[in-house]
Simulated assay, not measured.
Amino acid sequence: MPRLLLLLTGGTLLMTPGDPASSNANKRGAVTLDEERTSRDLIIEVPSLGRIADFDTRLLFHMDSANMQPADWLTLARVVHEELPRYDGIVVVHGTDTMAYTASALSMLLGRLPKPVVLTGAQKPLVEIRTDARQNLIDAAMVATLGVPEVSIVNSARALRGARSTKRDAWGFAAFDSPNCAPLVELGIGVEIGPHVLPPAPLAPFDERLERRVLALRVFPGLDPELVRAAIRSGVRGLVLEAYGTGNLPNLGGSLIPALVEAREHNVPVVVVSQCLRGFVELGQYDGGAAAQDAGAISGGDMTVEAALAKLMVGLGRFGPGEELRHFLAASVVGERDA
């Protein structure tokens, strides 16, 4: 039988009634957990898990995922890197609010993988009668035993590439989407694995270098360029701009181009992604995007903002702001963008 490691970080899935730690009366969560009890309770609540694999359970955090920070990504990535050789796969229980950020960060920190690393969570707690948690846990465990050696998010009977995923719905059970990449696995009556799943690769040595001082800004009519320039002068080391359509930016009234020139002068790389869920940045297509490219902006292609932020953090940490970073950002490292 496969052997899986279940890493617990908190989130709605693990919440139980009556805890004052939660401010949402519909999402009350337990203050304390212990590994032995939680592992036993999971099997009691979801007995099918014991028919899929033998589980070891480890409690890393017990937090609302809104409190997840880059230091926590590093802790999680380090544990996954250390433990993955001993298991057939790893399942991470995580809150849904920042799961796409964590999945993108894990993807970039770990690189190509020999085995599956699966994140899952729920919109309603496991202990509730009507919940998505049971099926998500079962599906995540199933995917962790398959030949899908990537970081993925399992939700609503699909495994999505982690570095392509974004949360799309705060209320529905189908909380995540991967707009520019088909699911890695679809779990219907049968189990269909996509042909684009990456082949297994040996784990690279763990590299925890990561630059936290990055900023994401959504472009909108009326955005004061001085605010962007102030951010650059304040010590920001990298910037992700969510631009219009295919990467268009204002270049007349309220032009952001002088701010991008100042970013280049301060050695602050600027990555441009699209606000559109199915967008793809081509900076030369319109005047504003072409001017941004001339000012040194870097196309993020079809990356999500979550993936662009994680990649910029990791790239700056490893390579600094020079030409090597530009090559890293333009490449498809773990399938996070079309090459």
Rank of each mutant, 00 (worst) to 15 (best):
T9Q: 04
T12G: 08
T12I: 03
L13E: 05
A21R: 11
N24C: 03
N24I: 08
G29H: 10
I44N: 12
I44V: 14
I44F: 10
S48F: 01
I52H: 07
D54N: 10
T57W: 04
R58A: 03
L60S: 04
M63P: 01
A66S: 02
A66Q: 01
M68C: 12
Q69I: 03
P70I: 00
A71M: 01
W73C: 13
T75F: 04
R78E: 13
L84R: 09
R86S: 12
R86G: 01
R86P: 00
V93A: 05
G95S: 06
T98Q: 07
T102I: 04
L109A: 06
L110M: 02
R112K: 12
V118Q: 01
L119R: 08
L119M: 06
L119H: 04
T120Q: 11
G121L: 02
A122Q: 12
P125W: 08
E128T: 12
I129P: 02
T131A: 08
T131S: 15
A141W: 03
V143P: 07
A144E: 06
P149E: 06
I153F: 02
V154A: 01
A157S: 15
G162L: 04
G162V: 04
R164L: 13
T166M: 15
A170G: 05
W171P: 00
A174N: 09
F176W: 10
C181D: 15
V185R: 08
V191S: 05
V197E: 12
L203E: 13
F206M: 11
E211K: 02
A216P: 00
L217S: 01
V228C: 06
A231R: 05
R233I: 03
G238D: 04
G238I: 03
L241C: 02
N248V: 02
N251K: 09
G254Y: 03
I257F: 03
I257V: 11
I257M: 05
A259Y: 13
R264F: 09
E265W: 04
E265S: 15
N267I: 00
V268I: 14
G284F: 10
D287Q: 14
D287C: 01
A292K: 09
Q293H: 14
Q293D: 10
A295C: 14
I298L: 15
G301H: 14
G301K: 13
D302P: 06
V305F: 05
V314D: 02
G322F: 09
G322N: 05
E323D: 14
E323P: 00
D338Q: 14
